[in-house]
Design a protein around this nucleic acid. Structure first.
Lengths: 102, 102
DNA sequence: TCCTTTCGCAACCGTTTGGTTGCAATTACC
DNA sequence: GGTAATTGCAACCAAACGGTTGCGAAAGGA
């Protein structure tokens, strides 16, 4: 089970989530492009992209002087996996509770 | 669609997630109890419980001088909902791409 | 070649955050 | 009633965070 920490931390910031959503539902873009669409500087976007990249939520392909970023949904599975485990732990507890009445 | 922000922010911290997991898979506990099991002060735990409570991830029942906290899995649905939407947006994009070849 | 664009690095800044300690108040127990 | 335990509030602190500006370097187009 991979640690959900980096993904959760990356998605906890609204701007970062906005960037991710933008990349996800409107396709790849460069940092400058994103900066022109969102109310923050390019540097801020760039830092956020760095963190998204570290969490695997984004893929960077550089060609020439520009770097194109695209959303990667894979790491969302880490969160799903964690939630799944939380659910099963809860089921286990219910099971144990039920068995305590046998 | 409820905002996943509070839940994501609440779960982004490792200690907070540890508290939540502890409550989820070992049942209710008080702040003092949790503090004795985790390597942080009671006050730190108390603050974390406050944030978990604000996100709806915890239920507080006070009786006498002590307050018993228990995990609430409901708000995890907010995250699930958000991820679902991300997925469907991605599907939409695939659909549009496919249609562009008609 | 020169100018523009895009990027990356670094410094800096105010605010938030996770954590601590100290103290007063309420509840339980002897 | 007195003492021990549990909670809540407040102040404080260092570090991380989100954001900005400035600048130098590399790539493209005139």
């Amino acid at each position: 089970m991979t640690d959900p920490q980096p993904v959760l931390a990356a998605l906890a910031d609204p701007t970062r989530r906005a960037v991710f959503e933008r990349l996800n539902n409107e396709g790849p873009a460069t940092a400058s492009q994103l900066a022109s669409e969102l109310p923050v500087s390019r540097q801020a976007i760039s830092k956020h992209l760095g963190q998204l990249d570290a969490a695997g939520l984004v893929d960077r392909v550089s060609s020439g002087r520009e770097v194109l970023y695209s959303a990667q949904v894979g790491p969302l599975g880490d969160i799903a996996g964690w939630m799944e485990q939380v659910g099963s732990d809860w089921d286990d507890r219910l099971q144990r509770l039920k068995e305590s009445f046998d």
